[in-house]
Each structure stands twice: as structure tokens, then as C-alpha cells.
């Protein structure tokens, strides 16, 4: 999956660089919007399919939402601090951090502002997912099981969930899924919101 994703982008870049008619460039934004709506609709179906998810949240208690809250705050503030050292505008660095590892959506959303920012969001969040896959077992062992959900961010509900589940236990896996759902829901809201500040 990860290879296919990277290949799609590389193919698109080469196509855009050498073959794509410049006259059609103004329709690229519209195509992005349409594709995004289709994608979000089906992500919604995936979330809705987990029928007992609301029951699970109730059972653990609302305090479980502290996990995605802290990951959200940590990701945005961390990216802002990193952006400060790199001399990237705080707003832009924060919006990239608010991608929470969901590289496709954050990159697509931010590429509306500028291709450069979209690329930075893509690269940052791809690297985040790769580091997450490698560091989750280490964090679970040496820092804490709950903390091992943190690097995953929005991917805690899909791509990194099997790794978290293997490195921890069933209850952490459920918390991980809930965290991923909450953070995924927040990405399309927070990224444009931070940019509009």
C-alpha cells in the first residue's frame, strides 16, 4: 500500500512535469475537491460500520478522549516548535502537524494553499507514519503502552493499528482505534481551521 501511494505521487509528478497540458492547470483544484468528497464519504462508511464503537467509548469513559486530545495538542505544538527552528511560519507548521500522519488528506488540503506546503505536509506525514511503524514497539516496551499510540496519530485506526495491537494488548488496541477515529475526524476540520487563523 505504502509503495503504491508513493508510486502514485511520483507518477503524478513526472506526468505533471512533462506531459500535463498547462491549459488544464486551473481545473486541478476542482478535481482535488471532488476526489476528496468521494474519499471522505467512504471513510465515513468505514467509521459507521464499527457499530459498537460508541458503546465502547461509553464503557471506557469519556476520559479516553484525553489520548487523542493530548496527541492533537502535542502534534500541533511540536510541529510549531520544529517550524520555529526551520523558520517556517508557525501557522503553516501547525497545519502540517495537524495532519496527524494522514498524509493524503493533509497534503491535498494544504496543496490548495501552495504546492510547496502540500508537498511539505505529504513528506512530513509520510515520515511520521514510517517512524511510527518503527518506534511503536520500542515506545510500548520502554515508555508505556498508552504512549505507543502517540506516534500513530490518525493512522492509529488503520495502518499502524496492527502494530500497536501486537505490541500492547486488546484494551489498548480499542483505545488506539478510538484515538484514530477522533484524530481522523479532526484532520479535515483542524487543517483548514489553523490555516484560516
Amino acid at each position: 500500500m505504502t509503495y503504491k501511494i508513493i508510486l502514485s505521487v511520483i507518477f503524478g509528478i513526472l506526468f505533471g512535469r512533462f506531459f500535463f497540458p498547462v491549459a488544464l492547470a486551473e481545473y486541478v483544484g476542482l478535481l482535488i475537491d471532488l476526489g476528496l468528497c468521494v474519499l471522505l464519504f467512504f471513510v465515513g462508511i468505514d467509521i459507521g460500520k464499527q457499530k459498537n464503537i460508541f458503546f465502547k467509548i461509553k464503557k471506557i469513559g469519556m476520559k479516553v478522549l484525553l489520548v487523542p486530545l493530548m496527541i492533537g495538542i502535542g502534534s500541533i505544538l511540536g510541529a510549531m516548535l520544529g517550524g520555529f527552528f526551520l523558520r517556517i511560519p508557525l501557522k503553516e507548521a501547525g497545519a502540517v502537524g495537524a495532519g496527524f500522519g494522514w498524509y493524503s488528506l493533509s497534503a491535498i488540503e494544504l496543496s490548495k494553499h501552495s504546492s510547496q506546503l502540500g508537498t511539505l505536509a505529504f513528506v512530513t506525514n509520510v515520515i511520521r507514519e514510517v517512524i511510527a511503524l518503527m518506534s511503536i514497539p520500542i515506545i510500548a516496551k520502554y515508555i508505556g503502552k498508552l504512549e505507543s499510540i502517540a506516534p500513530a496519530g490518525a493512522t492509529a485506526m488503520d495502518t499502524t493499528l496492527p502494530v500497536i495491537s501486537k505490541a500492547t494488548d486488546g484494551s489498548i488496541a480499542i483505545i488506539s482505534f478510538i484515538t484514530g477515529v477522533v484524530l481522523s475526524t479532526m484532520v479535515p476540520i483542524l487543517v483548514p481551521l489553523i490555516m484560516s487563523l
Partner: peptide, 11 residues
């Protein structure tokens, strides 16, 4: 979407 995004970068 990724393809379109790539095209936008490539342009």
C-alpha cells in the same frame, strides 16, 4: 487524488 496532487507538484 495522489496522482492529481503529484501533477500539481510537477507543474
Amino acid at each position: 487524488l495522489l496522482l492529481i496532487m503529484g501533477i500539481k507538484i510537477g507543474l
